[in-house]
């Protein structure tokens, strides 16, 4: 049996130095199993985004331990972090697509991080992925001529195209209307399940909650509830 997707123990995190030093995360202990959709909830400022960046090796672990895919992140060298990031997928509040690249080229960026490969095959895979998120008629559009929902779907395709082991999503629906927000999360979940991907998502959207396997609620840097459920939808 492979290691759990994530193991957090006695994790603390601080911002600022000296007098202004403020603790944002307090003594978090969690184990996330593979292949599940976990949702992080909580009011703004509760530390859920900070926790997400710590788990996704985008922020340095100061105290305690984060084991991502079996590898300890604390004091890990940059090269190890870079190669770990390549096994992850990120979806941000804003789509963060590159304005100079077409939809296909943006998705290709998710593949080329793994090396040169065969350009024709990579292009085919990128187009296939865009087809799966319903954008096969927008392959060569620049982001500026796509709608908000379409851009976020390109971002989903970019995150999933290289079959990441864990996908981190931070309020992926925040900038979208209800309809397209729901479509995006639905796709994320369906595609994730087919591939056995672990998904960690920060969200406020109640309609999404029922799709989750596990809901973790945070307040003031601490976990205040942790519920398993049988997902619907």
């Amino acid at each position: 049996m492979s290691a759990p997707a994530l193991t957090l123990s006695q994790l603390d995190h601080f911002f600022g130095t000296g007098e202004a030093r403020k603790q944002a995360i307090f003594d978090i202990n969690l184990t996330l199993e593979r292949g599940k959709l976990t949702i992080l909830m909580g009011p703004s400022g509760s530390g859920k985004t900070t926790l997400l960046t710590l788990m996704g090796c985008l922020r340095e672990v100061q105290s305690g331990s984060v084991k991502l895919l079996g590898e300890e992140l604390r004091a890990a060298p940059e090269a190890q972090l870079v190669s770990l990031r390549r096994r992850l997928g990120f979806i941000f509040q804003a789509h963060n697509l590159h304005e100079s690249l077409t939809a296909t080229q943006n998705v290709l960026m998710g593949l080329q991080v793994h090396g040169k490969g065969n350009p024709a095959q990579q292009r085919k895979a990128a187009r296939h992925m865009l087809g799966l998120v319903g954008l096969s008629d927008r392959l060569d559009y620049l982001p500026s001529s796509l709608s908000g929902g379409q851009k976020q779907r390109v971002a989903v395709a970019r995150a999933l195209v290289s079959n990441p082991e864990i996908v981190f999503a931070d309020e992926p629906t925040a900038a979208l209307d209800k309809e397209s927000g729901h479509t995006v999360v639905k796709m994320l979940k369906t595609l994730g399940e087919e591939r056995g991907t672990t998904t960690v998502m920060v969200t406020h959207d109640n309609r999404i909650l029922e799709m989750a396997d596990r809901i973790i609620t945070m307040e003031e840097g601490r976990v205040i509830s942790d519920e398993l459920q049988t997902p619907k939808g």
Binding site: V82, R85, R86, N96, E99, V113
Partner: peptide
């Protein structure tokens, strides 16, 4: 002008 895109690429694992 492209710091945001570059940060995204960094998160994706570009060195």
């Amino acid at each position: 002008d492209h710091l945001r895109e570059y940060a995204t690429f960094k998160a994706m694992g570009y060195d």
